[in-house]
Amino acid sequence: KTVHVDGVEYRFNNPEEADKFVKRLVKEKNGNVEVRGDTYHVE
C-alpha cells in the first residue's frame, strides 16, 4: 500500500499499518481520502 500526503509518498508492507496511518492523518487534517488502486491520497 502507498499513501500520498502533500506530495510525499509513504510505503507500507502491512496494509493494517497503512490504514491506521491514513485514519490518523484524516483526523489531524480533517481531510479526505481518495483511494486509487493500491494508493491512498490524503488531502
Score class of each variant (00 low, 15 high):
1 K>Y: 15
3 V>Q: 00
3 V>E: 00
4 H>M: 14
5 V>C: 08
5 V>K: 00
6 D>H: 05
6 D>C: 15
7 G>E: 02
8 V>D: 03
8 V>S: 01
8 V>F: 07
8 V>G: 00
8 V>K: 08
8 V>I: 09
9 E>H: 01
9 E>M: 05
9 E>A: 03
9 E>V: 10
11 R>C: 15
11 R>T: 12
11 R>P: 10
12 F>Q: 01
12 F>L: 00
12 F>G: 04
13 N>K: 06
13 N>D: 14
14 N>Y: 02
14 N>Q: 01
15 P>H: 10
15 P>D: 10
15 P>A: 14
15 P>K: 13
15 P>T: 12
16 E>S: 04
17 E>C: 14
17 E>I: 00
18 A>C: 10
18 A>I: 02
18 A>M: 08
18 A>K: 06
18 A>G: 02
19 D>S: 01
19 D>G: 01
19 D>P: 04
20 K>R: 12
20 K>I: 12
21 F>M: 03
21 F>P: 03
21 F>E: 04
22 V>K: 07
23 K>E: 15
23 K>L: 05
24 R>H: 14
24 R>V: 08
25 L>E: 07
26 V>E: 09
26 V>T: 07
27 K>D: 13
27 K>A: 13
28 E>M: 07
28 E>H: 06
28 E>T: 06
28 E>D: 07
28 E>N: 05
29 K>Y: 15
29 K>Q: 10
29 K>M: 15
30 N>H: 10
31 G>H: 13
32 N>F: 13
32 N>H: 13
33 V>M: 08
33 V>K: 06
33 V>W: 09
33 V>C: 14
34 E>T: 11
35 V>E: 07
35 V>G: 04
35 V>M: 08
36 R>Q: 12
36 R>F: 13
36 R>E: 11
36 R>S: 11
36 R>A: 08
36 R>W: 10
37 G>Q: 07
37 G>P: 07
37 G>E: 13
38 D>K: 04
39 T>I: 11
39 T>Q: 11
39 T>L: 07
40 Y>L: 11
40 Y>N: 08
40 Y>G: 08
40 Y>I: 14
41 H>L: 14
41 H>E: 13
42 V>C: 12
43 E>W: 14
43 E>D: 10
